[in-house]
C-alpha cells in the first residue's frame, strides 16, 4: 500500500535564502509522524509546501500514491489532506459549529448556483451529522454556538483541529497543535492523537514538546537548517548525542 503522504526533494527559498533544502519525507497510514527541530529549521515552510499553501521550488509530493505536486491547498483539502496552522486561522465571526460546518460542507464541490437559488444542499444533513460527531469527540459541544473570536487559545486549537477533521481527511498535518495548551490539555490532546491514528489516519505534526514526542510519535524527523538531519523511531533518534546537541544548542 502506498504511503498517505510522500515527499521527495522538496526545496523552497525566499529572497535567495534556502529555507527547505531537498527534504524527503514519508508518512504512513495509522502512524504519527513528528517533525522536530530548532526554530528557523523550515518546519512550517515544509508544511506549507506539502499542503499546497505555497508552491515548492523543486521536488514532488504524492498523496495516496497520486502525484499532487503544485496542487492548491483547497484542492488538496478536498482530496483528504487537511492541515492546521501554527497561528489560529479560525473564523472569528462564526460560531464554533459553523467553523466546523464549513469544512464539512466544502470537502466535496457543490453547485454554487444551487445555493444562490436557495435550494437545499443535498449533503447538508450529512454535514450536520459529521459536525455533531466531531464536536462531541473533541468535547466542544457546549461551546458549539459560541462565537469563535471570544474563545481562549487552547479551545481555538481544538476548534482548528475539529475543522480539519470535519473534512473527513485521511492525512492530517498539524502545525504545533499543542502550543498554548496547559498540561492537562496536552495530556488529553495526546490521547486524542492516538485515537485518530487508530482510525487509519496518517498524522504528521510539528512539535516542540519532547515529552509529547517521546510519548506519541511513531516516526521522528529532525530538521536542521532546512534539511532532515535524522529520522527514525523516537527512542533511537532522540537518544543520539548529535541530535540532542542540534536541538539544544549545547548538550543539555
Amino acid at each position: 500500500m502506498s504511503p498517505a503522504l510522500e515527499a521527495r526533494g522538496v526545496s523552497k527559498s525566499y529572497d535567495g535564502v534556502l529555507i527547505v533544502d531537498h527534504v524527503d519525507l514519508v508518512a504512513e497510514v495509522g502512524r504519527i509522524t513528528v517533525i522536530i527541530g530548532p526554530n528557523g529549521a523550515g518546519k512550517t515552510t515544509l508544511f506549507n509546501c506539502l499542503s499546497g499553501v505555497e508552491p515548492a521550488d523543486a521536488g514532488a509530493v504524492w498523496h495516496r500514491g497520486d502525484e499532487v505536486t503544485g496542487w492548491s491547498s483547497d484542492a488538496l483539502a478536498r482530496r483528504g489532506l487537511a492541515r492546521t496552522f501554527q497561528r489560529s486561522s479560525v473564523f472569528p465571526t462564526l460560531s464554533v459549529a459553523d467553523n466546523l460546518r464549513i469544512a464539512a460542507e466544502n470537502h466535496r464541490r457543490r453547485g454554487i448556483l444551487r445555493g444562490l437559488a436557495g435550494l437545499p444542499d443535498p449533503g447538508g444533513r450529512r454535514a450536520v451529522v459529521v459536525v455533531g460527531a466531531v464536536l462531541a469527540d473533541l468535547g466542544l459541544t457546549d461551546v458549539a454556538e459560541v462565537r469563535a473570536g471570544v474563545l481562549p487559545s487552547g479551545t481555538l486549537r481544538l476548534v482548528e483541529l475539529g475543522r480539519a477533521l470535519c473534512g473527513e481527511p485521511d492525512t492530517l498535518l498539524l502545525d504545533e497543535p499543542a502550543s498554548g495548551l496547559d498540561d492537562t490539555e496536552t495530556e488529553e490532546f495526546h490521547q486524542l492523537l492516538h485515537r485518530l491514528a487508530a482510525r487509519d489516519l496518517a498524522v504528521v505534526m510539528v512539535e516542540h514538546d519532547l515529552a509529547l514526542v517521546h510519548e506519541a510519535a511513531d516516526v521522528v524527523y529532525v530538521m536542521v537548517s532546512g534539511s532532515v538531519a535524522a529520522s527514525g523511531p523516537p527512542g533511537e533518534v532522540l537518544g543520539r548525542i548529535d541530535v540532542r546537541s542540534l536541538l539544544f544548542g549545547r548538550t543539555a
Binding site: N39, Q86, S179, H208, L247, F248, G249, A252
Partner: peptide
C-alpha cells in the same frame, strides 16, 4: 518564548 524550542527558550 512563544513558539521557541526548549533550547532556544533557555538561551
Amino acid at each position: 518564548s512563544r513558539g521557541l524550542s526548549a533550547g532556544a527558550v533557555e538561551r
